[in-house]
């Protein structure tokens, strides 16, 4: 009887999500097979849009660039976040929940404000450039600071680091220190304890955090747009243009679904990897 209660409770939520999340994505999928005929959409299905994407060096390049950025930022946040997560889980003591809260607070300022803040810091008229000129370090603003891949990746790292730290922190919380003592008793030195005990046991967190950061970087529209300048053209901004000025909804839909399909494949792979690595941890 109570299994029914849960199902009834979930039903309105399910209906809402199907109406405003699943249905739109299915219509988007249908659109990806249509084409634009002058200024109207012609409902005449074909694989032409997908063929166009596969045959276009530009779109292939943009997709690869998105995945490159995602992987790069996932790696940077992992390196920066690993010691932080370890410290919060194992060394912070009474400060643990304060540190976790402090880590998440900047996320609530909203993406627009965060990107704006980086423009204030890095812009040609911004704090760093103006102050360097005032201090006499340079005569003219360093243009490469803003509107560059560097600026974009600094801000992307800033945006998504907390998610990586949370993923790793969960893994460190479930890491039993007895494993380390046992390894030490058996004569393992520091680096080998790290490589053969700590790293494998925290790898589920690394994969989960990495996947989360990767997906969010790939899907980020604002950050490259506002900080990347000419380098800020991404596959996501290409979708935006196709739905706006370029008016080719079907092609935009096909690119969007290409991205969704690849991201779903990454998730499936991640789930398999996490399951396998937690099996190693449990053994």
């Amino acid at each position: 009887m109570s299994a029914r209660v849960g199902t009834y409770l979930a039903a309105p939520v399910m209906a809402f999500l199907i109406a405003l999340c699943v249905t739109p994505l299915l219509i988007l999928f249908a659109y990806s097979f249509f084409r634009v005929d002058f200024v109207a959409i012609s409902y005449d299905p074909s694989f032409a849009n997908y063929a166009k994407i596969a045959g276009s060096a530009t779109y292939r390049g943009l997709i690869l660039k998105a995945f490159g950025s995602g992987a790069l930022v996932a790696a940077i946040t992992a390196v920066i976040g690993y010691p932080v997560a370890w410290f919060i889980a194992k060394r912070a003591g009474a400060m643990k929940s304060a540190l976790l809260t402090l880590l998440l607070v900047p996320l609530y300022s909203g993406d627009l404000v965060r990107v704006f803040a980086w423009r204030v810091l890095l812009g040609a008229e911004g704090v760093i450039n103006r102050s360097l000129i005032w201090a006499g370090v340079t005569d003219a603003p360093i243009q490469g600071l803003l509107f560059s891949p560097l600026a974009t990746h600094i801000a992307l790292t800033y945006n998504y680091l907390p998610f990586m730290v949370i993923g790793l922190w969960l893994a460190f919380e479930s890491l039993d220190d007895a494993w380390l003592e046992a390894a030490a008793d058996l004569g393992a030195k520091g680096p080998s304890r790290f490589a053969r005990v700590v790293l494998p046991l925290t790898s589920p967190g690394l994969i989960a955090g990495g996947l989360m950061v990767f997906v969010m970087v790939v899907g980020d529209y604002l950050t490259p747009q506002l900080l990347g300048g000419a380098s800020g053209i991404t596959v996501i901004s290409a979708i935006n243009d196709l739905f706006g000025t370029a008016f080719d909804w079907p092609l935009g839909s096909a690119i969007a679904w290409t991205m969704l399909a690849i991201l779903m494949a990454f998730f499936a792979l991640g789930a398999v990897l996490i399951r396998r690595s937690s099996l190693v941890g449990g053994a």
Binding site: G6, G219, Y221, I236, A256, L263
Partner: peptide, 26 residues
Amino acid sequence: YPMRGRGIFTVLLLAPFLIPKLILAV
């Protein structure tokens, strides 16, 4: 309360968080 189809319900709930916002928007 226990329910049927818990797994798919969870995936459906989390999906909007992971799908790129611009794709959901279009």
